[in-house]
Write a protein that binds this DNA or RNA. Structure first.
Lengths: 236, 236
DNA sequence: AAAAAATGTTGACAACGACAACATCGTGCC
DNA sequence: GGCACGATGTTGTCGTTGTCAACATTTTTT
């Protein structure tokens, strides 16, 4: 990528002896987010501490408060970033298969899992218990981007319904099932909860591909009513 | 429930003025676990602190260390308890439908969700990032009970495969898909991640029922016997 | 150039997890 | 019966953390 370099942080992580370390960092905000991800990647746990981050960024302990109201706000910012990235993954699936809804669907599922594998630390923060996912704070930017991400899924489901690929019904409800399988698989992966299966990289890929197909199967329209979006057949 | 009462903690939560508060609590271990669940239920967050628990149990701050090696050990104990409870929920599904595999499967799915609704705090601890779900500690009792819980699911899947209800293939892999959908739905529920849908209790029940059916659909054997090797779907 | 806003720093406080040393209770052993 | 010992609970202390207040320095605006 020959793109123009970033303004380049004056301090990356540690003080440089040659220069007297400028009083202002330059781009602390980004550096903190980056350091936060790095810490989550390594330590994987809840150890993420403001002071630790400040240390990592070569800055003093309360400096982060000039950029984030609280620890939780910082984590929320990382989560927000994560949702945007996940949306990019979803967009990629659509871009690759603009004309084939089934391929789009399957690729979307794969991309969700791929995101989890590529950026587990983001996923953990997005859906972990770190952010007080309480109540009426629907004006928080995190909510907006989260809803937008879910919205992309609903769009896909609506398209699939129109094509007769996915069963009819409230697209939001269908989307919840789709999301559930992918989210569950991704979270189990990310939290090492499947390690007891001793899956090598090949076996993991097979599991992921299977999960993608099963996701479609979970909401697939019954073949009888392929192009006629109707209510489910009278089974009971 | 006319069952015999427990030995009755001498101290429940607060000191009683009448008695000089006996030096020994009597059943601190249970009291701590109970208080931990209570805290998780109320505060829902990571606030769970040893000192706080000790306070709640009317005991002094380092007393818990006589019963749990560390905070993480205490949380692991709660998680273990949760897995046992989840197994009981699963057993109930089997008990209700010993002869009908499809009904057993559906009820098992419902029971998983019911467990999440009934004991969200347990679920959060079982699958949250609190316990360092690391590596070779496969001898930890938590691993054993976790594996046993998954084992129950695999049993169900194997039975369903034999009956031609669920597609053939490695039952563990099939079980992962089943688990993924249920786990994903349960976690989204428990972490209030679906609140933006504004689901009333009725709508939630509908969603849950749909999730149960979609779970079966995700791994159902195709009626045309595409991948079902020997068994014919005798439509039961 | 002066004022104001942004950004970074040190000091302080309360809370926490964990360890050590000590106190008290109960139980088994002679 | 007495007593030693282990189980259990307590206080003291240390290092760490999140957060606020007060102060310092830099950048931007007027």
């Amino acid at each position: 990528m020959p793109a123009p370099e970033k303004p380049a942080a004056r301090r990356t992580t540690r003080k440089v002896k040659g220069k007297p370390a400028p009083y202002h960092h330059g781009n602390l905000r980004e550096a903190l987010l980056e350091a936060g991800l790095e810490l989550l990647r390594r330590d994987s746990a809840e150890s993420l501490g403001l002071r630790e981050l400040a240390r990592q960024a070569g800055v003093s302990r309360t400096a982060p408060y000039r950029h984030f109201e609280s620890k939780e706000a910082l984590i929320a910012a990382i989560a927000e970033q994560g949702f945007l990235r996940l949306q990019a993954y979803q967009d990629e699936a659509r871009r690759r298969h603009p004309d084939d809804v089934e391929a789009w669907f399957l690729e979307g599922a794969r991309q969700y899992i791929r995101f989890a594998v590529d950026h587990p630390e983001h996923l953990k923060v997005m859906f972990g218990p770190y952010i007080s996912h309480t109540p009426d704070q629907t004006d928080h930017p995190l909510y907006a981007v989260g809803n937008a991400t879910f919205g992309k899924l609903v769009e896909l489901v609506v398209s699939a319904q129109k094509a007769g690929l996915v069963r009819a019904g409230d697209p939001v409800e269908v989307s919840v099932s789709v999301w559930s399988l992918l989210h569950g698989f991704a979270m189990l992966l990310v939290q090492k909860q499947l390690d007891f299966l001793h899956l090598g990289p090949g076996r993991l890929a097979a599991l992921a591909e299977q999960a993608a197909h099963d996701t479609l199967a979970a909401v697939r329209a019954s073949p009888a009513a392929s192009s006629a979006p109707r209510r489910r057949p009278p089974s009971r």
